[in-house]
Structure formats: C-alpha cells, structure tokens
C-alpha cells in the first residue's frame, strides 16, 4: 500500500532533479553576474542552450571510436541513477533501500570514468590533459568522500543515505565535531567534483587552466547537450546530498500525503536556493587555485575527513 506513493515520489523526484539541474546552473550563473555588477543571462538560459544543442547535428572527429558515441549516455545514465538515490523533498522513496552512499560514490566514479575515456578517445592534447587532471583530483576526492561516509556509518550505524538523513533529521546524533569536519571535507569534495571555482573555473575556456571544459572540447550537438545535462544533474545531486546530510530539515516521509510533500518540496527548494546563493558568493570572492595547489587543498579535505573519523573512532572506542 505504500508502494504507490513511494513510486510516485520516486518518479516525481527524478523528474524534478532533471528539471532543476540546468536551472541551478543558470541560477548560479545569474547570481554571479549580479554580484559582479553585470546584467546576467536569464536562469532559464542553460535549458534553452540544451534544447538548441539537441537540434544540432553532432560532429565527430574522423578517428573517433564507439567510445565517443557511447560515453555520454553511460555518464548521464550513471549520474541519473545516482540522482534518483539521493533524497530530495521526501524520505522513503521506492529506491531508498538501495541509496547506499558507497553506491552513489561508485556511480559518480563510473560517470567520471566515462567522461575521461571520451576525452582521451580522439587523442587531442587538451582532452588528455583534462582527463589526467580530473582523474588525479579524483584520487583525492574519492578517499575523502569515503572517509566522510565512514564517519557517518559510525554515527548512524548504516551507510544508507536515506537512513542517515532521517536519523540526522530527528536530531538524535546532536552537533558533533565530526559532523563539522565531515561537512567541510564534503564541501571541498563537492566543489572539486563539480569543477567549481577554487579547483576549476566553469566560466572559462582559457587553455592552461581548464579541467572539465577541456574534456568536452571535441563534443558537439547532441553529445555536448548530454554532457552539459550530466554536469548540471551532478550539481543538483551534490547540492541535494549536502542538504540531506547537513540541512536535514523539513523533509517529508514518502507516505505522508500531498500536503506534506508540498512542504517538503518547499523546504527542498529553499535549501537548494540557499546553497546556490552560497556557491555564487563563494565563487565571486575567491580566485582559482593553481593546478599544483589543488592536490594540497583536496589533501587537506582528505585529512579533515580523516580527522573527523579518527576523533569519532577513538572517542567512541575509549568512552
């Protein structure tokens, strides 16, 4: 009997995530432009770009293999699957029992793998450079993410994101130093994973500094639209993930009925909006790091996550 509402919630959630992703990208761009005193494009612009790109004919390099054709679908599919698992406006969706944080990390890693393969497929220098940088950053972000997951697993007794979120929402865990450290580590990981400012500049095509854009140079038309959609969906996913873990207020249970859903939707929209504003302000006040400083930054995030886990482990073990 709870199958129908949870299925409905799941479908609504996935549709919303897909719709919200490009909107968030546009919103952050618009906010940044306003903060810098520019007019700024309409937040709907990424959606318009996507629709335009979908109508264009894709051009492939002569030596492109089947990887270039298949990788965008694989990456978008993996990201969409991960996005379906992250709780948004409601807990207890149909796929909630599968919403393991480790599975989400794996799906994101799969999408990154597909992106790097596609970048290297044609064999241009920029694609290879971008792929190499992306994967070397991932060598730091993935362990940091796993250590934060470890801390949550010790606090909540499970790695299921839905269960962790519900537990945090009830406030049984309290404010802990470990949570603070894990939140800082996850923020740094989220910035790096989405190619946002201290790590990568999403607004530039300057050759020597770009990471994410360098990997998309060879794609066009439909494939570029898929990659853009994947990036936008990843941003929505990460902001929802952070909101579910660190702003766990107002999320509705899946079988609570339409009115509770409405409040959950409202809370979710407010949380995403706040995070988008915070991201825009952050990107306006800080400069991009040199690429060689990024491992230091991400290494610090890794160590913060490690510190949180060590603190929790020792203090629960010895208490």
């Amino acid at each position: 009997m709870t199958l129908l509402p949870s299925l409905l919630a799941q479908l609504l959630h996935l549709a919303l995530m897909l719709a919200v992703g490009p909107l968030l990208v546009g919103l952050v761009r618009w906010l940044k432009a306003r903060l810098m005193g520019r007019q700024g494009a309409n937040p709907l612009q990424p959606w318009r770009d996507l629709l335009k790109l979908l109508r264009k004919q894709p051009l492939l390099a002569e030596n492109a293999s089947v990887v270039s054709l298949a990788a965008p679908y694989a990456a978008l599919g993996a990201t969409a699957a991960a996005a379906a698992l992250v709780p948004g406006f409601t807990h207890g969706m149909l796929l909630a029992p599968m919403a393991d944080l480790i599975l989400i990390a794996g799906l994101l890693a799969l999408a990154r793998f597909a992106l790097a393969l596609a970048a290297m497929d044609v064999g241009t220098a920029f694609g290879d450079l971008g792929a190499a940088r992306e994967m070397s950053f991932a060598a730091f972000t993935e362990p940091a993410f796993m250590l934060a997951v470890l801390a949550f697993a010790m606090l909540a007794g499970t790695t299921n994101l839905d269960a962790v979120g519900s537990l945090l929402q009830e406030g049984m865990v309290g404010l802990r130093v470990t949570l603070g450290l894990a939140s800082l580590a996850l923020l740094a990981v989220a910035l790096a994973e989405n190619g946002r400012l201290p790590v990568d500049n999403p607004a530039t095509h300057l050759e020597l500094t770009m990471v994410h854009e360098a990997m998309l140079l060879e794609s066009s038309g439909r494939q570029l639209a898929l990659w853009e959609m994947q990036g936008a969906l990843r941003l929505a996913l990460w902001l929802s993930l952070l909101a579910a873990l660190f702003l766990p207020f107002g999320t509705a249970p899946a079988d609570a009925g339409p009115l509770a859903w409405l409040f959950g939707l409202l809370a979710w929209a407010i949380k995403l909006g706040l995070l988008a504003v915070a991201l825009a302000i952050l990107e306006s006040v800080i400069a991009k790091m040199r690429v060689f400083r990024v491992p230091e930054f991400l290494g610090a995030a890794l160590l913060l996550a490690l510190l949180g886990a060590v603190f929790l482990f020792l203090s629960t073990g010895l208490a």
Partner: peptide, 20 residues
Amino acid sequence: GQLSYDVAHLLAGTVLLLSF
C-alpha cells in the same frame, strides 16, 4: 543531544580546526 554540550563541543572543535 543537549544544547549546552553540543555547542561547547562545536566551539572547541572550531578552535582545533583553526589550529589546522
């Protein structure tokens, strides 16, 4: 779960974090 404890813990944690 008690507010006075939580906030004290968090503030001390902030001092530690700033040391890092």
